[in-house]
């Protein structure tokens, strides 16, 4: 890793954090509609995971997708514009927060039905196998998704067909407000992969370097024909499930303990302690991220609404 790679990871995580903090404000001002699920606290997961993918590797995730979009190379501008429902958004203002995508960057969305994108991920990988592409499909989902039928159908199919999928469970401890052990028969979620004869492991999702390291190894194994594998990433969402979550299901002490493990703070200390970057350099990254997000908000606010004819566009490709 070059120094600029380390700084780039830091930059991405701070951009995600600032973008989400700003989007929470814009939501409260009524400028963002619908649901808004913040990724704050989980930035190290997608940043580490996606930092080692090749361009041909496909990424697909659930509705908590802003960070994943940034990590896949979407600009803060087109993400913010989508949140504001503008014509310049990555989904032309028709998808919203939960439906970000850019297929040219191999980011296959943002999917809002819990678990439903898992069989689709199996299909993306099947497409690569069929066409002899040496690509890995990375499918991210929450702990809540491991209790729905689609999860089991998809894992089973991926193993039966030996598909190149990395199943990544972001265990943030809660499916909405229900704790893992209240919803899942096994609380060590990666054990569910055992039922499909699939290799699994767990990693600390608050540490971007650990996520990156394990991801790089798993991509290579899968690329070399290991078949699907399962990675459980232990993480925590600092904010509620979505805006307007009363958070009756967890104590402020619990939240405080996790806040002390802020993934950006952990990585910040790591960079300083290993003499990779100076405090000044990191402050400079924060400043740049700040400016990038400010620019994105200004761009999104100044962008036009989708024109009326957009309503009837894209129902079908033909007719």
């Amino acid at each position: 890793m070059e120094k600029r790679d380390y700084l780039d990871l830091y930059h991405q995580m701070v951009v995600i954090r600032r973008l989400e903090e700003r989007s929470a404000e814009l939501y409260q001002q009524g400028k963002i509609g619908g649901f808004l699920h913040l990724y704050i606290g989980q930035e190290a997961v997608s940043t580490g995971l996606i930092s080692v993918r090749r361009p041909e590797d496909r990424i697909i995730t659930a509705y908590r997708d802003h960070g994943v979009a940034i990590n896949c190379g979407l600009s803060a501008r087109e993400v913010m514009a989508e949140l504001l429902g503008k014509a310049t958004g990555c989904s032309r203002g028709k998808g919203g927060s939960m439906h970000l995508a850019d297929v040219k960057k191999n980011f296959w969305g943002g999917h809002a039905i819990v678990g439903a994108h898992l069989p689709i991920a199996a299909g993306l990988a099947l497409g690569d196998v069929y066409q002899n592409n040496q690509a890995v499909t990375v499918c991210m989902f929450g702990d809540g998704a491991t209790n729905i039928g689609y999860f089991h159908e998809a894992l089973n199919l991926s193993k039966v067909w030996n598909l190149p999928v990395l199943w990544v469970c972001e265990n943030n401890q809660y499916g909405m407000g229900t704790a893992v052990e209240r919803a899942s028969a096994v609380s060590e979620i990666r054990r569910k992969a055992d039922g499909y004869g699939m290799k699994s492991e767990a990693v600390d999702g608050m540490d971007v370097m650990k996520v990156r390291e394990v991801s790089a190894r798993l991509y290579e194994e899968i690329r070399n024909g290991s078949g699907p594998q399962f990675l459980e990433v232990i993480t925590y969402r600092f904010r509620g499930h979505s805006m307007g979550d009363p958070e009756r299901y967890r104590s402020s002490e619990e939240v405080k303990t996790w806040l002390e493990n802020d993934p950006i703070g952990i990585y910040h200390r790591y960079l300083l302690e290993n003499d990779i970057a100076s405090e000044e350099e990191l402050q400079q990254q924060i400043q740049m991220a700040e400016e990038e997000v400010n620019d994105a908000v200004a761009f999104a606010e100044a962008s036009p609404e989708p024109p009326a004819e957009e309503l009837f566009k894209h129902i079908y490709v033909e007719g």
């Binding site: 069989p119 299909g123 069929y130 998809a154 089973n156 199919l157």
Partner: peptide, 18 residues
């Protein structure tokens, strides 16, 4: 397998790849 969501889901994914 006898798993209709997997069948249609996988078909969707494969279609997305062209």
């Amino acid at each position: 397998p006898i798993a209709e969501a997997a069948i249609i889901g996988a078909a969707i994914g494969a279609a997305l790849t062209g």
